[in-house]
């Protein structure tokens, strides 16, 4: 391994897993009150986003110019935007998109990371060193700089944002999985299985992955939070999800308007709180998962 410092840090963050999911996982997770609250919130937001557009009497897209820029009222709890659309409805619809983008991006990064991590750890040798060199390379470029350059080149769209965030964040999962795979592969029973000529594909699926997925789950959970923040930051720079499609990022972007920031807080309060609380909840969940999954952290 090239960077002992980095290795050390990865160990300092207490995500060293030895066992499969330890017994009593749920009990311990639920005892982490903040994590539990976070999970409840995330579930509520998720369900709300899925259901609200059907419940809301308003169309999140169709303009209604006579109703433009209304202040909050019973009819429109968060007021209306410049085109007269109900902001609360759009917050929920935006939640669908923001969450979907973050999940899709993380699915890509976790998938790619797992694949590369398994390949590096299981194969070892030159495969390992090439993959790890590439990992180092990607980790050395400030992610957001590359993100900006890429999005401005490919053009901002949901698809591109997902792809680019996904393709630029696989390094963490890859390192984690590789570490796990290495520790599993050295177990005597795996060595025995390899020696007895068991097919490598099945070996990986049967024995290696089940041991490696736990840290990936934790990393992915936190990855979702980071992807959300990345999407918001891209939207701020005008490189994120493009209107009319609402996302929390581009709705929060309205607060860039000084007048909106100062005089019309209801416009940004919804998406702002949604992002902050969701990210916070996910972070808590990650923390809880970590505690629940890692026996060492139970002190």
């Amino acid at each position: 391994m090239s960077s002992p410092a980095l290795e050390r840090v990865v160990q300092v963050t207490p995500v060293t897993f030895v066992e499969r999911r330890p017994p009593g996982f749920w009990r311990r997770f639920l005892r982490h009150r903040l994590a539990f609250a976070g999970m409840v919130f995330v579930v509520l937001v998720g369900v709300g986003s899925l259901v609200a557009p059907w419940i809301s009497p308003y169309d999140p897209y169709a303009m209604q110019l006579p109703d433009a820029r209304l202040r909050p009222s019973w009819d429109h709890p968060l007021g209306t935007d410049n085109l007269g659309r109900d902001i609360l409805t759009r917050v929920f619809v935006g939640g669908r998109i923001s969450i979907a983008v973050a999940l899709a991006a993380v699915a890509i990064s976790s998938g790619l990371g797992t694949l590369l991590g398994v390949a590096a750890g299981y194969r070892g040798g030159w495969v390992d060193s090439i993959i790890m060199r590439i990992t180092d390379m990607f980790m050395s470029i400030p992610m957001f700089v590359l993100l900006i350059v890429l999005v401005s080149m490919l053009g901002p769209s949901a698809k591109n944002v997902i792809l680019i965030i996904g393709l630029l964040t696989w390094m963490g999962p890859a390192r984690l999985v590789r570490g796990q795979v290495l520790s599993v592969v050295n177990e005597p029973y795996i060595e025995a299985a390899i020696a007895s000529g068991a097919p490598p594909g099945r070996l990986v699926i049967r024995h290696v992955l089940p041991n490696a997925y736990v840290p990936v789950v934790v990393a992915s959970t936190l990855g979702v939070a980071n992807a959300m923040l990345s999407e918001a930051a891209l939207s701020f720079l005008g490189l994120g999800i493009q209107p009319p499609t609402p996302s929390w990022g581009n709705m929060l972007n309205a607060a860039q308007q000084l007048q909106t920031l100062v005089q019309e807080p209801w416009v940004w309060l919804g998406p702002g709180a949604a992002i902050a609380l969701t990210v916070l909840s996910i972070n808590f969940m990650g923390d809880g998962l970590r505690d629940a999954l890692d026996p060492r952290a139970r002190r």
Binding site: G155, Q242, P243, P244, Q256
Partner: peptide, 27 residues
């Protein structure tokens, strides 16, 4: 932002009479 909003409105007006357009910002 103002232009983007105007474009959205134009898009909807055109759509209402059967002219479908997709908006694209030249970056």
């Amino acid at each position: 932002r103002l232009t983007a909003t105007v474009m959205e409105a134009v898009q909807q007006y055109l759509d209402a009479v059967g002219i479908r357009v997709e908006l694209r910002l030249d970056d």
